[in-house]
């Protein structure tokens, strides 16, 4: 589904190479986890896949079901099925959360040539999904992420993901800043979306999220590259021994 080959990325404004040849394939129905020390390039990878400005791809490719992602605008990637749950969800004063969600859902439907969701159907769906994430009516009415706690912002990301039903879900440190209960809610939200046709790329610094979202494959990223790939046990190894051993072994 998602195929990344030899991806090299530098900052647009500076001569700083961040990704130095990433190879990664996520198959439909699978959950891949990326772990790695701070600054290794995990967020950069997620931004490059979703089309944020400021990065320059100097080599390599990234495709979704064979379509070149790197050529598309961010909104086209979204319509094609890419979704990024942000490490730092953005606050947008003046735009109601509900309006935002409905605009996004209908924009994607329109881009795919589908009918827009009626106001009633949308409302029914959003209420049900919000409820399972313990997002109350007040949070839906408030401006996007404004005044939300860290945990509320992350749950709001998962609500967007649930509403947009993307093919390829990328979660960037969705567990950071969450207490155990909030993490369980988020994990349940993600697990509810696990499906044969959907791929996940779960970026996390810690193993604990992976207790709740069981990965099929675990990658270790360091200094802009995937340095090791293994099964779920690899995450436990990191948990017990830290990154140092793995990095020493690779070097």
């Amino acid at each position: 589904m998602l195929e990344i080959k030899n991806l090299h990325v530098k900052l647009e404004e500076e001569e700083k190479q961040i990704l130095k040849g990433v190879d990664l394939t996520v198959e439909a129905g699978k959950v891949h986890a990326i772990m790695g020390p701070n600054g290794s390039g995990k967020s950069t990878l997620s931004y490059v896949l979703s089309g944020r400005d400021g990065y320059e791809v100097t080599d390599g490719s990234a495709t979704l079901d064979g379509e070149d992602l790197l050529e598309m605008e961010p909104e086209e990637r979204a319509a094609a099925g890419v979704f990024l749950a942000f490490q730092y969800p953005v606050e947008i004063p003046g735009v109601g959360n509900m309006t935002f969600l409905r605009t996004a859902v209908n924009a994607q439907r329109k881009a795919r040539g589908e009918d827009e969701l009626s106001a009633a159907d949308f409302l029914k769906e959003v209420r049900a999904k919000a409820k399972s994430l313990k997002i109350d009516a007040d949070m839906l009415k408030r401006p996007v992420n404004v005044g939300f706690s860290g945990g509320e912002k992350k749950r709001n990301e998962i609500l967007q993901m649930a509403m947009l039903e993307p093919k390829m879900c990328i979660l960037d440190e969705t567990d950071s800043g969450l207490d155990v209960d909030a993490m369980k809610l988020v994990a349940e939200g993600v697990n509810a979306l696990r499906d044969e046709g959907r791929g996940f790329l779960v970026i996390t610094h810690y193993q604990r999220l992976l207790d709740h979202i069981k990965p099929d494959v675990v990658h270790i990223m360091a200094d802009g590259k995937i340095v090791k790939t293994g099964g779920p046990d690899l995450a436990l190894e990191v948990e017990n021994n830290g990154y140092a051993d793995i990095l020493a072994e690779v070097n």
């Binding site: 979703s50 089309g51 944020r52 400005d53 605008e73 961010p74 909104e75 990637r77 979204a78 319509a79 979704f83 990024l84 942000f86 969800p89 953005v90 947008i92 935002f100 605009t103 996004a104 924009a107 994607q108 881009a111 967007q160 947009l164």
Partner: peptide, 8 residues
């Protein structure tokens, strides 16, 4: 970017 990444 946030809005666009959601397909708007």
């Amino acid at each position: 970017f946030y809005l666009r990444s959601r397909g708007v």
